[in-house]
Write a protein that binds this DNA or RNA. Structure first.
Length: 425
RNA sequence: GGAGAGGUGGCCGAGUGGUCGAAGGCAGCAGAUUGCUAAUCUGCCGUACUCUUUACCGGGUACCGAGGGUUCGAAUCCCUCCCUCUCCGCCA
């Protein structure tokens, strides 16, 4: 959530910044209009309540006979106040709705753009590999090796579901364990969070109310299945005031993620690139405000530290204003090359969310002992998304005979196995 | 799921209709004092919104789990819900 004071006091700046992300200035005007009405009503109500308090105290001291006379008058005032309170509640709901609907402001240095096509590749590492044969897409490899079973996934659940079996499952588990160990070495605290969260938690990260239609939920119990571990990790300290010494907080978690993707027909239909359920290792940082831009750079490095040892070509993309996540002020994506698919795969997305989520989650810290609490800043990044990392490994490490060599760093996690070959799994 | 107890400020903990934003303690901040990292004393010390204001100070309102209700007036009485604890049941 944005700071309403910023909207009031630096309206033009906010309009310009949001304009770069494709938001019409009239949206801000609308918020300010409701804000003005809300404040006026609040003020009137405050005065009525002040009068009631004052006169009620006097009334208490009066003799019983006099008391009766003024009781009726006081009751009318009470009715007026009740009516005002109902009106205020309605306006506040409207106000909250509008405020929750405003995305975060991009940093000034984020490149302008309308969408994905305008993102800027800022770095590419590793030349594209040459194969002496036609590299296969991972679904071919997976089925031939018996490590991915698409048909049975569909049978169990439906389209876009699959299962990993044998060494495929083990490879995924190896990747997860290896990543988590790396994160631990980088200073992240490993968490196993709930995979279902309540509405308040999902609202605090900005996933609700805007993206309600992309999440699975249990209405009866007010549970939302997490679309990413960012949600529980970022929400962990909701409604808390942290001690300054606690910051920065670095958290990591491996979790399955659930997304009600509105799958467009014909796009990414094959393989495991996009599904309703996938595994991910996530990083979340809660930091002091003045450090968050530097922490974002460090976060990218922490993600790259997972990418590099795999020896797969990758690139870093700076996300433009039109493609930023809702809560982000700046964002970088990391993409790995998939020779079978012939495309770059987004395996990580690192964002600085400023105080946007922390304001919603009401997570603050005291900069000085005894000082006033301030909102902290939050960041999140994948470290990494598993299916796409698995794709990249499979497609880059495939051999002419259809086997897949296990990357060196993963072998200790695979019981020393050096390749996945054809044969009984 | 059933029965009982309870949810109060950063923490602990009083408070059962008005003088309670809330005693007391701890922690924190400022100062005093002390022959030495401790002790003692004094003062300050919730959050948000708002008015006045350059700012400070000050005034007002809201907040005692959440939402309703009763009342001139609710932390306090009533209703609903949520959560925690204890016991029972069920269970991976």
């Amino acid at each position: 959530m944005l700071d309403i004071k910023l909207l009031r006091e630096q309206t033009d700046y906010v309009k310009a910044a949001l304009g770069r992300a494709g938001i019409a200035p009239t949206e801000i005007d609308q918020v300010l209009e409701v804000d003005a009405r809300r404040r006026r009503l609040q003020h009137d109500l405050d005065e009525m309540r002040a009068r009631r308090t004052r006169e009620s105290k006097e009334l208490g001291r009066l003799a019983p006979a006099e008391r009766e006379a003024r009781r009726l008058e006081m009751r009318q005032l009470g009715d007026q106040i009740s009516a005002g309170e109902r009106e205020l509640t309605a306006i506040e709901h409207r106000f909250d709705e509008l405020m929750l609907g405003l995305r975060n402001l991009p940093r000034d240095w984020v490149p302008d753009g309308k969408g994905e096509a305008d993102n800027v590749v800022i770095r590419t590492e590793g030349g594209l590999p040459h194969f002496a044969f036609q590299p296969l897409p991972h679904w071919e490899l997976g089925e031939r090796l018996g490590i991915i079973d698409f048909e049975r996934g569909v049978k169990l659940s439906g389209t876009r579901f699959y299962l990993l079996r044998g060494l495929g499952a083990r490879l995924e588990r190896a990747l997860i364990a290896w990543m988590l160990d790396l994160k631990r070495d980088q200073g992240y605290l490993e968490i196993i969070p709930p995979l279902m969260v309540n509405t308040a938690t999902a609202t605090s990260t900005g996933h609700l109310p805007k993206n309600a239609d992309t999440m699975y939920r249990d209405i009866e119990e007010d549970f939302w299945f997490i679309p990413t571990a960012e949600v529980p990790l970022t929400g962990m300290y909701r409604d808390e005031i942290l001690a300054a010494e606690q910051l920065p907080i670095y958290l990591t978690a491996y979790t399955p993620c659930f997304r009600r993707e509105k799958m467009s027909a014909g796009r990414d239909v094959r393989g495991i690139k996009r599904g309703h359920q996938f595994d991910k290792v996530e990083m979340v940082k809660l930091v002091r405000p003045e450090t968050s831009d530097d922490e974002l750079q460090a976060l990218i490095e922490d993600a790259l530290a997972v990418v590099r040892p795999l020896n797969i070509p990758y690139r870093v993309v700076q996300v433009c204003t039109g493609d930023l996540t809702y809560a982000g002020v700046a964002q970088y994506d990391i993409e790995m090359w998939a020779p079978g698919l012939g495309e770059w795969l987004e395996v990580s997305s690192c964002s600085n969310c400023g105080d946007f989520q922390m304001r919603r989650a009401n997570i603050r810290y005291r900069p000085q002992k005894g000082g006033r609490p301030e909102f902290v800043h939050s960041l999140n990044g994948s470290g990494l998304g598993l299916p796409r990392t698995l794709i990249a490994v499979m497609e880059n490490y495939q051999q002419a005979d259809g086997s897949i060599v296990i990357p060196e760093v993963l072998r200790p996690y695979m019981g020393g196995i050096d390749a996945i070959r054809r044969g009984p799994a």
